[in-house]
């Protein structure tokens, strides 16, 4: 066991624990975006940084291991300042409207004001063609954003990269940390870096196996069920009316746990609990999307959302 202090409080943590785990063990949660228990830390979002005495810069608490005698500050002026600015930089360049409530609370806590960088730039459609190191004119009249058209190229899920904070979670879930399919990677560089298939081909033309594990880990709603996307677009997505029921997948014998999100007696989305030991939140195409056979939409009872769901399902692939 290793003893350290966090905000003056002595904490004893097991060897190999991270500062984040140590903080959480005493009820001091830290904001995170790119961190997930089931993925290897990439420490890129930098909202979890803390101050460690003797360290020139702040350190990411999600990956830094505890060391004996460490003195850690999570609420110092430096920490608050960095977190505030990092959130502002994100919020001024990415659509964060669908991040979960805890992140919104942190942003309120740090008095995040993304508007101070100017009006947000409108969407552009050339982000996938940008060449590393080639400069894209910056006049300063708007705060540059990643706003771009939604990628809709199959009937199961959409990619709305205007919401992408480049947390790498989808890449990890698609690759080494879960699916081992490697259909997507980060391409390009700098502000023009983006999640992409090879040469930006449509998902059905690439290696994607549509497990949707990328959706499962996405913290901002950039990756979304087609059904949710269409219902939102039609103003029919009513999360407050939805029930979430945990059950077991009806297909193979692995025993993956599913959380069925049901609205108007229709499954509108499927997730899986990351704290369940069988698959840690990861599913395959059948578990994630193969539920449609229990809802022959419109056959017997028509709900307000049936038409939209049917359209989404029958949209086909490009």
């Amino acid at each position: 066991m290793i003893s350290l202090t966090i905000d003056g409080q002595t904490v004893v943590s097991p060897e190999g624990a991270t500062l984040l785990e140590a903080c959480r063990s005493i009820g001091k949660d830290q904001p995170t975006l790119c961190y997930l228990e089931t993925l290897a830390p990439v420490n890129v979002c930098r909202v979890c940084v803390v101050e460690v005495e003797g360290s020139r810069t702040l350190v990411p608490s999600c990956s830094r291991k505890v060391e004996p005698g460490m003195k850690v500050q999570t609420e110092s002026e430096r920490v608050r300042h960095s977190r505030k600015v990092v959130f502002e930089l994100l919020a001024s360049s990415v659509d964060l409207s669908l991040v979960d409530d805890s992140v919104q609370e942190w942003m309120t806590n740090y008095q995040v004001d993304p508007g101070r960088f100017g009006d947000l730039a409108p969407l552009v459609d050339d982000r996938d063609e940008r060449h590393a190191g080639h400069h894209y004119e910056n006049t300063g009249t708007h705060a540059e954003t990643v706003f771009q058209p939604v990628k809709v190229d199959n009937s199961l899920y959409v990619r709305d990269y205007s919401r992408c904070i480049l947390c790498y979670k989808c890449v990890e879930a698609c690759g080494d940390d879960a699916q081992n399919t490697f259909a997507i990677a980060v391409a390009g560089r700098g502000f023009d870096a983006r999640i992409s298939t090879e040469f930006d081909v449509a998902l059905p033309q690439g290696a994607c196996v549509f497990c949707g594990n990328c959706i499962g880990v996405c913290p901002t709603g950039a990756l979304m069920f087609r059904s949710e996307h269409e219902l939102r677009a039609s103003d029919l997505w009513h999360e407050e009316e939805q029930t979430v029921t945990r059950t077991v997948c009806s297909y193979c014998g692995v025993g993956c746990n599913l959380e069925l999100h049901v609205q108007d007696n229709r499954i509108v989305k499927v997730t899986s609990p990351i704290d369940h030991s069988v698959t840690s939140g990861h599913l395959c195409i059948k578990g994630r999307f193969g539920y449609e056979y229990v809802q022959q939409l419109g056959d017997l009872a028509t709900t307000p959302i049936d038409d939209v769901l049917r359209r989404a399902r029958e949209a086909g692939t490009v």
Binding site: V42, N43, V44, C45, R46, V47, S82, V85, V86, L89, L90, S92, S93, F117, G133, H134, H135, N138, A143, E144, I165, L166, V186, G188, R189, G190, F191, D192, A193
Partner: peptide, 17 residues
């Protein structure tokens, strides 16, 4: 701005701002 690798937020967006 052109040479930031784009990995971490402060540098990726900060250099633009």
């Amino acid at each position: 701005r052109d040479e930031s690798c784009g990995q971490c937020v402060p540098c990726r967006v900060g250099t633009v701002r």
